[in-house]
């Protein structure tokens, strides 16, 4: 199986490379449109700022390449947010696969921002998750969130529910970092590779 990881100016991409390697698969890290289109699975990771990252994707043409992919695609963290319609972070229009805007967590006492650490996923409805993963803990680091919507396939509670995972057609996405979520995260990546 050929697993391609989208190479762009975001942090944390190598963590995803390592996580796929730990599953016994050597991924390719590339920004070559042909290699991305030919891969069996594509992962669109990312830690960074939405507006500057979108500018980079537009400049390199990767925005159109990612939107046009037809194989299973997994967006992670910022990758997930950029697959949405618009982000409050830098007030930028994003790729628009998921028809929902990304919002900033509003600060209230006792609720720290960023939402950083291990929290539970629930209301799971996607083959991205294995059986019995309801209420498993996964690792999050983010200050912006995707509200619960028609594409939501997992939710997490943080001063209300938000989308922990999304799915529409061949596009899957997690707000959390499966590559940093211990054995639970490895299982989710494995499930994705089996789609």
């Amino acid at each position: 199986m050929q697993v391609a990881i989208v190479k762009y100016n975001a942090g944390n991409i190598h963590s995803v490379v390592h996580a796929i390697r730990r599953l016994g698969i050597e991924p390719i890290l590339t920004d070559d449109p042909t290699l991305l289109q030919q891969a069996d699975k594509v992962i669109f990771p990312g830690v960074g700022e939405a507006a500057t990252t979108m500018q980079y994707l537009q400049k390199t043409g990767l925005d159109k390449v990612i939107k046009g992919l037809t194989q299973p695609v997994l967006g992670i963290c910022l990758g997930m947010q950029l697959l949405c319609k618009h982000s409050e972070e830098g007030h930028v229009d994003a790729l628009g696969i998921f028809d929902i805007p990304v919002k900033k967590f509003s600060w209230v006492k006792g609720i720290k921002i960023p939402h950083m650490g291990w929290n539970q996923i629930g209301q799971l409805k996607s083959p991205l998750f294995a059986k019995n993963q309801e209420n498993d803990y996964v690792y999050f680091v983010h200050s912006y969130y995707v509200p619960v919507c028609e594409h939501t396939v997992a939710t997490t509670q943080y001063n209300g529910a938000f989308s922990a995972a999304l799915n529409k057609n061949n596009f899957y996405a997690t707000q959390f970092h499966p590559e940093k979520s211990g054995d639970v995260g490895s299982l989710i990546l494995e499930q994705f590779l089996q789609l």
Partner: peptide
């Protein structure tokens, strides 16, 4: 109590 209210809103695990 304030602690209980904040726990309801926030099931983020305390980290070790």
């Amino acid at each position: 109590s304030e602690a209980n209210i904040s726990q309801q809103k926030n099931m983020l695990a305390k980290r070790i």
